[in-house]
Computed example of a mutant assay.
Amino acid sequence: MKSRYLLVPLLALTLAACGGVDPNSPQGQRQTIFKQMLKVSEDLGGMLRGRIPFNEQRFVSGVAELDQLTRTPWQHFPQAREEGEESRAKDDVWQRQARFQELARAMEASTAALLAATATQPLKPEALTAPVQRVEDSCKACHEEFRAF
């Protein structure tokens, strides 16, 4: 009977170890950052769209976090696609580096502009809608060109 109780967790651990992405690999690191960016931006958009109560302090700290996060995933795209990597990134990321970097800088600029928009206190959600939309648009532009859905 004891072996049955041990078998279930052991099986779960074995399945968890199969497949997946090494969290220390460049792909694993950029996926983690992109997931964090998504979570933060969803919260910000949720506050402006009424899904989450607007909290000025949380909004400002979220924008600061997003601004920092947007500067980090690009370093985890090696110069060439790693052999055997199954990624949602299209080969164009590596073949059209100049355009990819251009969109990365546009993303950074959009979050910096949003951060600047939070400097005027008290915050007015209606004044933040356009800068948040520009951040979302910059994400979408890169996804449309460089992400395989």
Results as ranks from 00 to 15, higher is better:
29 Q>D: 03
134 R>V: 03
126 E>N: 06
74 W>E: 14
85 E>A: 13
122 P>D: 06
123 L>F: 10
64 A>P: 00
146 F>Y: 12
71 R>Y: 09
45 G>Q: 12
136 E>S: 12
69 L>E: 06
46 G>I: 09
48 L>A: 10
137 D>H: 02
22 D>V: 12
46 G>M: 10
95 Q>N: 14
79 Q>W: 01
121 Q>H: 11
67 D>K: 14
15 L>W: 08
71 R>G: 06
69 L>Q: 10
78 P>R: 07
107 M>T: 11
31 Q>W: 04
141 A>D: 08
26 P>L: 02
12 A>L: 15
61 S>K: 14
57 Q>S: 13
139 C>E: 01
10 L>E: 03
100 F>V: 01
69 L>I: 12
72 T>L: 13
108 E>S: 07
63 V>I: 04
133 Q>G: 09
96 R>D: 12
77 F>V: 11
82 E>M: 11
68 Q>L: 13
6 L>H: 13
25 S>I: 05
42 E>T: 14
85 E>Q: 15
102 E>C: 05
19 G>L: 08
123 L>R: 08
134 R>I: 01
35 K>P: 00
117 A>L: 07
133 Q>E: 14
51 R>K: 12
13 L>C: 15
60 V>S: 08
61 S>D: 12
5 Y>S: 05
101 Q>I: 03
76 H>T: 04
41 S>H: 14
64 A>T: 05
142 C>T: 03
37 M>G: 02
115 L>F: 11
54 F>Q: 03
149 F>Q: 12
51 R>T: 10
6 L>I: 14
12 A>H: 04
33 I>C: 05
148 A>S: 06
127 A>Y: 02
72 T>P: 01
